[in-house]
Design a protein around this nucleic acid. Sequence first.
DNA 1: TTGTGTTAACTAACTAGGTCGTACATAGGA
DNA 2: TCCTATGTACGACCTAGTTAGTTAACACAA
Lengths: 214, 214
Amino acid sequence: MAAPSSSDAERQRDKDRTRADILDVATREFADKGYTGARVDEIAERTSTTKRMIYYYFGGKEQLYIAVLERAYLAIRALEAELDVEHLAPEDAIRRLAELTFDHHEAHPDFIRLVSIENIHRAEHIARSEVLAGLANPALDGLTQILERGRAAGRFRADVDPLDVHMVISSFCVFRLANRHTFAAIFGRDMLDPGRREHYRSMLGDMLVDYLTS
Amino acid sequence: MAAPSSSDAERQRDKDRTRADILDVATREFADKGYTGARVDEIAERTSTTKRMIYYYFGGKEQLYIAVLERAYLAIRALEAELDVEHLAPEDAIRRLAELTFDHHEAHPDFIRLVSIENIHRAEHIARSEVLAGLANPALDGLTQILERGRAAGRFRADVDPLDVHMVISSFCVFRLANRHTFAAIFGRDMLDPGRREHYRSMLGDMLVDYLTS
DNA sequence: TTGTGTTAACTAACTAGGTCGTACATAGGA
DNA sequence: TCCTATGTACGACCTAGTTAGTTAACACAA
């Protein structure tokens, strides 16, 4: 490693920008068309660089896809880590966490689609990623503390596993986005209708609190 | 139209059998690899017939895929229509319905995968199917009656929409199957572990009853 | 019964258009 | 001269869909 000169730093910045550019385009393409449906040529065309560069930077289609997944998961986990609910009553804290997840998923439909796609592939790519395999959810720590506090205060039932609660929150928020198209096609209801947003958002909190305090 | 001779009937049976054979194989292939990932050649090879026959019977890859979706939805709806809970108390009826959906989804992972895949494609194929677009869920009628009974008896809250309850049930049951791979990769928990099955099955009913009676 | 025309069921081989990945050439800084 | 970075062009393979032709069953007239 040579000592970094200013031009080295510049070049590194350029490189990072090119990588980020490719990842932006690739994220949209993979989220849109799935792993098999995505076209490397298409990604290259929508990038300020060439296909050759994609192979130069990432090695291949699969490694590019894994890089896309890694960045998407890391971004979402970074946001989750900011959760701060220690000053709230347990019930309100649970509602707050549910709302955070709710908002979060709604704001990142690409991420939800990538997760769906990755599940179709039985998470084989995540398993192959050293960054992601076993990457725990930071929100889980906050959730564990909330449940602990609620239980200590005698307000929450004692037999609840944080991961189960996380699963319920995720299932509600993920389903609303991931299955909205078949749901709309069959029942004629758009789960993302802005007019119903608040209803769903508070419904999840209500359900959780009712269950935890029963 | 000639009067149906016995050989006509036989030929129709053969034809139906060939169609069903192709659909069986195609269901597995599409559920396994997704629409784009599925290979018509592969389906043909695993069938007792040839690729040309698939085009002969179904017209193309997309029409074959739609036929697979139609059959899968129709099969599941037929089972749902058998729900009979009028003799149960509203709380028990809700639990029964939730368990039926829970068991059902668990027993039909291929169907869940097809639904996930179809959502990745924004339900464009379902929308194109005359059979499926607007095919309501028979279980929804049962659910509506249960909620009505519970409300009339003063045991259930009044402000609950059947479709919302259906959504909660579906989200829980679907998430458990559809997202099990990424969930396992990241949290190290297999949501389909038989040892946890009863826990999840009753947890869903508990949650619903807690919410509806709150 | 036999010959003939007709139609549905079926098949192998092919085509046209992609699709990932690579070989090669080049430029320019250290 | 070596290394990183980049562009062009191509090759090997794959895949949905088609073409052109075969087989088998049947209807009906002679």
